[in-house]
């Protein structure tokens, strides 16, 4: 139909058209999709982090400015109901106020603050301690006397050693201070709190809450076995992680 020369030209033109069309598609669609699995990242907390509040910022990574000016492209998960604001001070890389997903624990605040600085007394902080909205989380330096001892943290829901919440309400779902394990209060925990226990999924968490509402508060830990779906094996795995309280 066509001479070899014309056929060659047509093939060449078609090839170039394919590459240019691919280029056009990239231009048209780039940036339309933020890939990856759902995340619990709550978005930028950086408007609350002023340079005045970051005396140790110079020792951190050189990307501080980038962090301030470039919010993460990952959108907050739809399942995160609200944010908590936590004030982090002491021996961390970037002290400041950070917004965290509700239900966060101390390690999350520490990660946001860039981790421990070199002089942190890491043993004095309970990283598994639950936080609450408005708490002041302080990481003591080595040799530093604790400004707020465990006794000054009556609300058990705030980080114990090295952290204080003088004016913050305690987190309703948790009790326990100072210990290495933070226990979940079966009588006040939400379904979201309960789902963080090993082997407890949304169904079992809902069953625990439903049982509590139907039969009243648990008076002892063993009462957990009355919930459908929790046998002796699962109870053994959970008994050290939960508590009952008012």
């Amino acid at each position: 139909m066509f001479s070899p020369r014309i056929r060659g030209m047509l093939v060449l033109a078609a090839g170039v058209a394919c590459l240019l069309a691919a280029w056009g598609l990239v231009g048209l669609f780039a940036g339309r999709w933020h890939g990856g699995a759902p995340t619990t990242e709550a978005g930028s907390a950086l408007p609350f982090l002023s340079t005045r509040e970051s005396p140790e910022g110079k020792t951190g990574s050189g990307s501080d400015n980038a962090r301030i000016s470039a919010p993460s492209p990952v959108r907050p998960s739809a399942s995160v109901p609200e944010e908590w604001f936590v004030y982090v001070t002491g021996a961390v890389v970037r002290p400041g106020v950070y917004a965290l997903p509700s239900g966060s624990r101390a390690y999350a605040a520490l990660e946001r603050a860039g981790g421990f600085s070199g002089e942190a007394n890491t043993e004095a902080v309970n990283l598994a301690a639950p936080l609450a909205d408005g708490v002041h989380f302080h990481v003591p330096r080595k040799g530093e006397e604790l400004r707020h001892g465990a006794s000054s943290s009556p609300g058990g829901g705030v980080p114990s050693a090295g952290a204080s919440a003088p004016s913050a309400p305690s987190r309703p779902g948790s009790v326990g201070t100072g210990g290495s394990a933070v226990k979940i209060n079966l009588n006040t925990a939400t379904e979201a709190d309960l789902e963080k226990l090993p082997g407890v999924g949304p169904k079992t968490a809902a069953a625990i809450v439903a049982d509590r509402e139907a039969r009243g508060p648990f008076s002892r830990i063993e009462d957990l076995q009355r919930v459908r779906g929790i046998g002796s094996k699962k109870f053994d795995a959970l008994k050290d992680l939960v508590t009952v309280g008012p």
Binding site: V11, L12, A14, G15, V16, A17, C18, L19, A21, A22, L25, V26, L28, F29, A30, G31, R32, W33, H34, G35, P73
Partner: peptide, 20 residues
Amino acid sequence: GVPVIPAAGIGLLLAAGFLL
């Protein structure tokens, strides 16, 4: 940040272009 279907389409167009 190109979504799935256009991304696959771009790969196909490139393959066709390379072949031609």
